[in-house]
Amino acid sequence: MEQAVHAIDVNLVTCESIYVSLAALREGLGQAYRDRAAVVHLSPADMKRLQIRDGDRVELTAASGSVVVAAEADGDLEEGAGRMPLSLYSNRLAEYRPSRWPLPALRLIQSTVSPTGKGVTPVEDLLVRRTVA
């Protein structure tokens, strides 16, 4: 049996999902939004290396932060590549460093993926908290 690895690096491509848009329009940032947005698609080979199955939770960590989402295999993806819907979850990982790139890096994010026993990050934890006047 192949030895499990604790973490792998992936290049995450984010994309707009009509299902995330519909959930937000219909119910706001509720459960349906979380179910649609808190997902990362990984290659079957990477899923195997991490010894995880569809629905298992993984922690994604990037320079700007981390989130816990559900993992799903996608046979279309190559090793080291990931895909996730554009949402509050992906925006937690995205950064804006104009010295490196003129636009916020919303679409292509370098991240580490590791299996976790934690629950999916609640949407409330992704909202910017401010002390309002």
Binding site: G65, N91, E95, Y96, P104, V128, R130, A133
Partner: peptide, 23 residues
Amino acid sequence: FAALPQSVMENLGDAKIVCLSPL
């Protein structure tokens, strides 16, 4: 606040924000 990186939007901590929005 939904469309941009949260690491950027957190910088608005001290600013006053007025929002006109239908939703």
